[in-house]
Amino acid sequence: MTLSISLSVNGESLNVPLEDTRTTLLDLLREHIGLTGTKKGCDRGQCGACTVLLDGKRINACLTLAASVDGTDVTTIEGLAQGDTLHPVQAAFIEHDGFQCGYCTTGQIMSAVGLLSEGDAGADPERIREGMSGNICRCAAYPGITAAVLDAERRQSESEGTSV
């Protein structure tokens, strides 16, 4: 029996056959759809490297059954930039050196995008550290990551302030 699911990935509608109900969203993205920007770190929900947005909320793609995302909207790191213009969180990570080896970075950035849209961390570094605690960085680039998220938050609230 083959299962087929429909979903939107970074705005593109896809129809994907599934041969195994245990296929994760992470493997679906990397192996079936070919989007390898989402990383596999621990593959058991402990490191956050596989963070993506599911209907706008951040989740661990490694703990999500692909079969369960039928009809949903998935955003990965590949869906953030507008052409050559980086997403403000991506730009802030570069500016504040929010990484060293880079393996966890795509998960860190997706998690930060999710955190900013949740809208309750504000400019409090401790709340940002709490909100980013599901993303482990083995290089311990945490000071740069916190600075980048704080800066992205500041830019976001400024641009929201000017647009009102």
Binding site: G45, G48, R58, N60, L63, G114, S133, G134
Partner: peptide, 12 residues
């Protein structure tokens, strides 16, 4: 609820 895993876990 805020200490169950991470926000990624809490969302699922």
């Amino acid at each position: 609820a805020r200490e169950v895993g991470s926000v990624q876990i809490q969302n699922a």
